[in-house]
């Protein structure tokens, strides 16, 4: 009964002592964001809530009036677009993390490698849809470098890196391109097995944060904006499996 009462408390609208910021978060960063949100809540009385999704979809929603305060995109180009459309001021952006692309298998003995991609027995590879996922575009570029001449390789598109991970995990494809942070951390791949794609093989995944119009008036959004480029957040982000972002 007490537990139910506690849950009911969670359903109440945010209480008066703090503000809430709504953050549109690229799917690959959702788990890391959850850690950051907890740390952030512990530093003060504001909180942040995440709406995870594919970056392209989140940008489309923002252009159609979605009430987000911040965007944590998986790339730079999406933020360029929002700046060009006048939704973000040119100064209200920075790179919060640089993503690491992994060719991943759910099977810990498979150990994906460039050779595996050349193996004709491999018929299918999963990757996020390049149309709206920066990781998908990076994966496509990496495939061009790692497996040139494999035009016969079937591509299974996930809606985002998150769905791509589910596809591979459930056997939809033997291997797939995902973000290191989803399957491991700074120490390497922790679940299944994976090959860290060299950064030179794809355009950099410079994951860019943008302060949206609404966020400029929201104290919680402004506080998180500073927190995200502070030393503590940087440690969390790097430990989670990203290269460091810009100096804050």
């Amino acid at each position: 009964m007490a537990r139910i009462a506690l849950w009911m408390l969670c359903l109440l609208p945010p209480l008066a002592w703090g503000e809430t910021a709504r953050v549109a978060v690229a799917a690959n960063f959702a788990a890391t964001f959850a850690t950051l949100a907890d740390r952030f809540a512990a530093t003060g009385h504001h909180r942040v809530v995440a709406s995870p999704g594919a970056t392209g979809k989140l940008v489309a929603q923002i252009l159609h009036g979605a009430p987000f305060d911040l965007l944590l995109a998986a790339d730079e180009a999406s933020v360029d677009l929002l700046v060009a459309r006048g939704r973000v001021r040119p100064q209200d952006r920075y790179v919060y993390a640089e993503g690491i692309l992994v060719l991943w298998s759910a099977d810990s003995r498979r150990s994906p490698s460039p050779e595996l991609l050349q193996d004709p027995a491999l018929q299918r590879v999963a990757l996020p849809n390049p149309r709206h996922s920066p990781y998908g575009r990076a994966a496509l570029a990496a495939l061009g470098r790692l497996a040139p001449g494999r035009g016969d390789l079937e591509h299974l598109y996930g809606e985002s890196v998150a769905q791509t991970l589910v596809f591979v995990e459930r056997g939809g494809a033997p291997v797939g391109f995902v973000a290191l942070a989803q399957v491991g951390d700074a120490g390497g791949v922790a679940r299944g097995s994976g090959y860290l794609v060299p950064a030179a093989f794809h355009p950099p995944l410079r994951q860019t944060a943008a302060l949206l119009e609404r966020g400029r008036r929201n104290p919680a959004a402004l506080a998180f904006w500073e927190f995200l480029r502070g030393a503590e957040a940087r440690r969390v982000i790097e430990a989670a499996g990203y290269r460091r972002g810009e100096a804050g």
Binding site: A31, V49, S51, A66, A162, V166
Partner: peptide, 22 residues
């Protein structure tokens, strides 16, 4: 909807999120 907790994140959308997070 836009997947906003408490405003538009209904049960079916949360389910989708949970599956994607494995």
């Amino acid at each position: 909807g836009g997947n906003i907790p408490g405003e538009t994140r209904v049960a079916s959308v949360l389910l989708y999120d949970l599956v994607e997070a494995l």
